[in-house]
Design a protein around this nucleic acid. Structure first.
Lengths: 153, 153
DNA sequence: GTTACTGTAACAGATTTTATTACAGATTAG
DNA sequence: CTAATCTGTAATAAAATCTGTTACAGTAAC
């Protein structure tokens, strides 16, 4: 799945974690910062809500906020919630099953897919939303330093 | 990249490893077994040749054969040769950079991409083409057993 | 020189992602 | 209770990506 849903989900969650957390954000506002359509955000938030990562409220003054503290949200959960979870696709046409290889290659490839998926989830499991926030902060400081450094010349 | 190129590459290499290895296979023949077009196979083989995994020969009686023994070909090499190598995409539209999050989120996501990519390559590095062949054999035997078992009823 | 391949370009078709419009249902304020 | 303002979802359009196909130049054997 080469979609950008994971990226947009992490961005959205970071926004929810960054702003005052008791005040829910509106999809329109998030969409504006992420530069996409509000419906795209709502669909994503809907998936995140199903995974109990966020809580939405309908009606005027409604919006969405995190369901838990950022330190308690792992990127694995986000990945599972919004991404299909296949690193590569199998053959679109089923291979010729008269051949020894063709008969079993897809079963073998599926096993490899599973291994990779596990590896990815383990890896993402080590990263929490809180860590993403601090990575962002560090990145911002680096930017600032670079910029000042260049001004000194 | 949710393409099936990796699957088709592994299938193709398995075919090259399975048949007599001194006799090169023609793209048309491989395409028939993989159930795709010969040009698709040639494009793939062309990438695999650039990665020194196979050797092709033009002209009548030409074709393609493995460049090394199956035990010496790791799936990491195959993956790198044919697949773009991005588990998820970044935002298609760049996010609003007036916002603290938007300014740095993509840099952070890139780092996460890199980590995942490394994890995948490490994982695939543990699997050689030779192992794929034996996995296929095991799978075929399992199929056979199942089939015979069902016939006994 | 004829035949039988590979390698690539160029284009068409299919599939997948993303954006947009529209509207029903929920919630609050007045 | 009515108007205003959200979410959630369906339906559809547009854009991007992936596959398949045709065409043909270049290479090697016979």
């Amino acid at each position: 799945m080469a979609s950008s849903r994971f990226s947009i989900a992490v961005h959205t969650l970071a926004l929810l974690a960054h702003d005052e957390r008791d005040k829910p954000l509106k999809s329109e506002y998030i969409a504006c910062l992420v530069k996409t359509n509000a419906v795209v955000i709502r669909r994503l938030l809907s998936d995140l809500a199903s995974a109990n990562l966020v809580v939405s409220q309908a009606g005027a003054t409604g919006g969405t906020r995190l369901a838990r503290a950022p330190a308690e949200i792992s990127l694995t959960e986000v990945y599972r919630a919004v991404e299909g979870g296949e690193i590569f696709s199998l053959h679109r046409q089923k291979p010729d099953s008269h051949c020894d290889i063709g008969r079993s290659i897809q079963a073998v490839l599926s096993k490899i897919q599973d291994r990779l998926d596990t590896a990815i989830e383990e890896n993402l499991g080590k990263i929490s939303l809180a860590e993403v926030l601090s990575m962002i902060e560090i990145e911002n400081k680096n930017c600032l330093n670079k910029y000042q450094g260049e001004n000194l010349r």
